[in-house]
């Protein structure tokens, strides 16, 4: 017996026993477990092979896991006949997504482009401008850093009902929520970033007789970029959350947040999941774009070197 365990490994043995028990209890459960265990064994093999050291292998392992979750989801919903108003299968979500591309494209433009992106640009620009404005006053910096850190931890999303009251149901109020949400994390990172250039580098600029603005543009802003991009990346996620959740407090009849909340109300969960998929794709693409820009701009930083 121990020889068998040593040969096939304790995990596989546990899986085989569990599968055997499942066959006796419920065939549907056994089918689900079989898929799960098989995929898990594939991933164990993959992650132990030489392939795992390459980038392609890493992507493959993560992809196998992702696809397995989708297959398990589909199987579970179909075999156990889970009602569509509780959890629709992935294939139906994909069909809903494909069948409503025009509608969802309109939602995407309304929420992501008009609401999130406008607010993101205004909020981040305002925060960097403010950081530069207080740059010459260590007194104000010492005050702004703790206050900014404090504000960044607060549930600013709660200002959404107030801003919807002020700026109306359109995308302007969503952009205003996004401005408030991204401003403080961005401000803290920008203020800290402008202090990142070290003594030696500043002294060098001094020996060149560089003016304040020359040293700001040529040394301190570039040196601040890693932290500024840190703020930009944090803010990219916050911007989407702000734009979507603000729509729960009132919006015209389009927008991802509107789509999600009204479809939930009508129990059209396929549409809800389609909206969530669009939001997730938009979020990843947004973050990826900022990360790519970061690679270009801060190529000199140790964290970006291969």
């Amino acid at each position: 017996m121990t020889a068998v365990v040593a040969r096939i490994g304790p995990l596989l043995l546990v899986q085989i026993v569990a599968l055997g028990a499942a066959v006796v209890v419920d065939l549907r459960l056994a089918a689900v477990l079989a898929v799960w265990f098989a995929a898990w064994q594939v991933n164990i093999r993959l992650s132990e092979s030489a392939l795992a050291r390459r980038d392609g292998g890493r992507v493959a392992v993560a992809a196998v896991f992702g696809v397995t979750v989708l297959i398990l989801w589909e199987l579970t919903v179909r075999l156990f006949q889970v009602p569509g108003v509780i959890l629709p299968p992935p294939t139906r979500i994909a069909a809903t997504l494909a069948g409503n591309l025009d509608l969802l494209w309109g939602d995407f433009v309304q929420t992501v482009v008009k609401g999130a992106l406008t607010g993101y640009v205004i909020g981040c620009a305002a925060a960097v401008a403010m950081a530069v404005a207080v740059d010459r006053s260590p007194f104000l910096q010492r005050g702004l850093l703790p206050v900014g850190n404090f504000m960044a931890a607060l549930p600013i999303i709660g200002t959404a009902p107030i801003l919807v009251m002020w700026f109306g149901f359109g995308w302007q109020s969503k952009a205003a929520v996004v401005v408030l949400m991204v401003f403080f994390p961005m401000l803290v990172n920008a203020v800290a970033g402008l202090q990142a250039a070290d003594r030696m580098q500043r002294d060098l600029m001094e020996t060149y007789a560089a003016s304040y603005w020359q040293s700001l543009v040529k040394l301190r802003l570039p040196a601040a970029m890693p932290l500024i991009f840190n703020g930009l990346k944090i803010s990219s996620t916050l911007a989407l959350i702000g734009a979507i959740v603000a729509e729960f407090f009132g919006s015209p009849t389009l927008g991802l947040g509107f789509r999600i909340s009204t479809s939930v109300g009508q129990l059209q969960l396929g549409m809800v999941w389609a909206g969530i998929t669009v939001a997730a794709l938009a979020g990843s693409a947004f973050y990826f774009a900022v990360a790519q820009a970061e690679k270009r701009v801060t190529f000199w930083h140790p964290s970006q070197r291969p």
């Binding site: 108003v85 509780i86 959890l87 990219s236 996620t237 989407l240 959350i241 979507i244 959740v245 729960f248 991802l256 947040g257 999600i260 909340s261 939930v264 109300g265 129990l267 969960l269 809800v272 999941w273 909206g275 969530i276 939001a279 997730a280 979020g283 990843s284 947004f286 973050y287 990826f288």
Partner: peptide, 18 residues
């Protein structure tokens, strides 16, 4: 961490409610 997972909150509430 890069996607607005807060967006599924309304669905969780309504589905669990049902």
């Amino acid at each position: 961490q890069t996607i607005p997972i807060l967006a599924i909150a309304p669905m969780i509430i309504v589905v669990l409610n049902s």
